[in-house]
Amino acid sequence: MPTLHTINKSPFDRNSLQTCLRLANKGAAVILIEDGVYGAMKGNTVSATVEKALSDLSIYVLGPDMKARGVDESKIIDGIKVVDYKGFVDLTVENDKINAWL
């Protein structure tokens, strides 16, 4: 029963991404939305953790939230997929349940 995890906080502000990565099972999906999109960026102190997580998890980032914040796709960690709201909806359908790390 795979889970889609949603993260809406910057990993530099709160620990929701770190906690999610600790408690997500192999094969789960994670979508970074709202301020969570900063967790998808390369070249920062959190990137290595996220890159490592990609071997067990599928990670997605919500494009409209990236664009709003001036985060270009070229700044996103390789292997993280950019989706729109339609893609977000599809992820909630493909997984059995959604765990929002509020």
């Binding site: 029963m1 600790r22 765990n99 929002a100 790390w101």
Partner: peptide, 17 residues
């Protein structure tokens, strides 16, 4: 954490506040 991850996996609906 590992045990909790497995427990979470068995749920049908997850409420967060």
């Amino acid at each position: 954490s590992q045990e909790l991850a497995e427990i979470l996996e068995q749920q049908d609906v997850v409420f967060s506040f």
